[in-house]
Amino acid sequence: MIIMEDVHFSYEGLYTALRGVSFQINQGDRLAIMGANGAGKTTLIKHMNGLLRPMRGRVFVDGGNASSKSVAELSRIVGLVWQNPDHQLFLDTVEKEIIFGLRNLGFSQEDAQQRCDRTLSKLSLEGFGERSPFSLSGGERKRVALASVLAIEPLVLALDEPTIGQDARQKELLADLLKELNEKGCTVIVVTHDIEFVVEHFPRTIAMADGKIVADGPTRSVLSNQQVLDLCSLTIPQLTQTARALHRTFPTASERCFLLSEVEDAIVEILEGQ
């Protein structure tokens, strides 16, 4: 679906953000891109819909070289949801915001309206259609930005830090929604620092540091590598911390637990096993 070959990029030739990035993302993948602040994650996904073009190397999207396609063509395939919704939203009602993108891509008014209604209900934004995006809370604005892209039903959905400002319930709803889209064939890519969100919901992780990929593989093995965690400025989630602390006192308890039920069972075993 997306292939990058030795992609390099620097901003105005001054600050090098990508230093030779290569990977392949297949249709139906659900993956996370993690890394420290300034590792090049956002720069990378901006290459997927042509907002940025590589200075060296090649990008292929849906079987074709991205360099021969316009941003508008690529946006139909790869929907990008920005980190800061205020850089994306500009109209005075939520509904106009969502319909704007659809109409620009050639959907009829009627079709656009239907897609808009469907998307609002999917994102628990019913009743928000007539409100101004700027009267909404930070978390709600993020969901409107997501809705405006989701309504296009792109083949690939790339989200930059989607969990910022979301409470736990909204995060669960978001994860369910992304899984549902993924099961219908949509390729889902998230850029995030939220390690628990990744461990629970994304089978593949690409770890980046200093403009390069330092690991790419099954999430559990990538994120149990201490060297990768250090390079990416990630800290281990509280569950893993608990498992490690338990393991120090009770060596029979596994230190590699990623799920709540695993740690819970380990404690039950310790307490009832005596």
């Binding site: 910022i164 400002g165 620092h193």
Partner: peptide, 8 residues
């Protein structure tokens, strides 16, 4: 919210 976990 925008910081990597170590910086946070």
């Amino acid at each position: 919210s925008n910081l990597d976990p170590k910086s946070a």
